[in-house]
Design a protein around this nucleic acid. Structure first.
Lengths: 246, 246
DNA sequence: CGGGGGTTTGAGTCCGTTCAAAATACGTGG
DNA sequence: CCACGTATTTTGAACGGACTCAAACCCCCG
């Protein structure tokens, strides 16, 4: 059954959905043991290296993807090569449901930013699960509703906030997942992406990101070295978003 | 049962969902006669005048709204008063489902652009319908998926296309619903909104819209007089979107 | 006829872009 | 471990599209 030479490779020890750490945080948490068994049987697990394309814009929809581990960038590109990074998807999250429920082909591509292990639940099994379990559909409804809310928020912020504020916003959201505090009490964030990706995410250019980073450093808000960001005082960053009058 | 002095007013002759012209185009087309009866009983119909607020940002979710007739603008505003017109909703379409399925309060406001007749299907009835009829949930899934695709498209276009091209795009989408062809074969579009709304929709300012309109007139692409737009040759407008090399 | 919202116009400015080049990090093979 | 080629990041200088602020203009309605 396994295509041993397939690339990207099948995971050597495909994890069980039953023991999957991410399940409680995902849509699949509503499944019964019986349905979970079906999911476990049906899923196709693969691994991807950083930079690898998981799905390309224009690909037909094969099902829904579930991230076992790693970070995935969902990117939309137009004819002229302009691209916008639409969303980051992290371990425990799913992607591809937008296309699945929209009944079209992928309108954005998915790329592994870190080494990833990703399960694909193919259309036939998925349909059976959805028919079996109405709550699953509602989970996806909720998820799509939140995604749409975020997208609308992004639209508004892109036109109303300067790049510097948007960058501060991004750092703040990334800190939850990629941040830690060192001995000196300084917040350290390991960015999961390059400058160009940050630019795509904020709707601007890599050069502008570099410049904005410099002004942030000059103003003692944060220190960047490569993909590491050091933030000695979180309050300074918060002030970027909601300037306090002194 | 009817609050006779309520304002906005109840429609004098509430229309039946059975005879509703818009139903075939809406999510409700999947309902059985039995469920349709439930919908018909449960719905609360009101009329709104142009400019009237149907729901305000921050309002709690009461259910899902269905537009009998008229056009509704869904608008998102931030603390500083910047606003983005997120979507237009037309006769036969629903709105409020984003908030309903997202389980929060409204993150955008809904405003009648034209005289509107709108039905509200309140949460309890809605829940019963959704439980009864899985296909209805899938309809909303499809709808949300399309909305999200549009939102992502908007994000990309806002950063990659100039205002002029975005305006051309808008005219092209409005022509289907608000356009007609006069004796001389000229396409005439009656815009359902003011300049400020167009600006909000395109993520720019009213002044910029005025200036862009002027350049479009100078280049013989379209003629604006108030809310009427005359387009003698549609090809010119299409060239704006996809410039053809001559 | 006198508001008053909406629209248009003007002038000046700024934020972000573009293009180009230099500097730096990164991975790979010798 | 170093050298080399490539990709990424940073910096600079000039430009430009859209914004801001402010005033004039229109048109509709009372």
């Amino acid at each position: 059954m396994a295509k041993t030479h397939a690339f990207p490779g099948h995971a050597p020890n495909p994890l069980s959905c039953f023991t999957c750490q991410s399940r409680s945080r995902s849509e699949w948490c509503v499944l019964s043991d019986e349905d979970l068994d079906l999911l476990d049987q049906a899923k196709v697990t693969k691994t991807y290296r950083p930079g690898q394309i998981i799905i390309a814009q224009g690909d037909p929809c094969r099902g829904i993807y579930c991230i076992e581990s790693g970070t995935v960038a969902l990117r939309k590109t137009d004819a002229e090569g302009n691209s916008a990074l639409v969303r980051l998807a992290h371990a425990g999250q799913t992607f591809g449901y937008r296309t699945y429920f929209g009944r079209g082909e992928f309108t954005s591509s998915a790329e592994a930013l870190e080494p990833c292990t990703i399960c694909l639940i193919e259309t036939p099994s998925l349909r059976r699960l959805l028919d079996h379990n109405p709550a699953l559909g509602f989970k996806f409804l909720e998820h799509l509703a939140h995604d749409l809310a975020n997208a609308e928020e992004t639209i508004l912020q892109n036109v109303s906030l300067p790049v510097r504020t948007r960058l501060a916003h991004l750092l703040l959201t990334l800190k939850d997942r990629y941040g830690s505090v060192d001995d000196a009490g300084t917040l350290v964030i390991s960015l999961p992406m390059r400058r160009q990706d940050i630019a795509d995410l904020l709707g601007t250019r890599a050069e502008t990101i570099a410049r904005t980073i410099r002004t942030l450093e000059q103003d003692q808000v944060a220190n960047f070295s490569g993909r590491r960001v050091m933030i000695p005082d979180l309050d300074n960053l918060l002030d970027e978003i909601d300037p306090v009058d002194h």
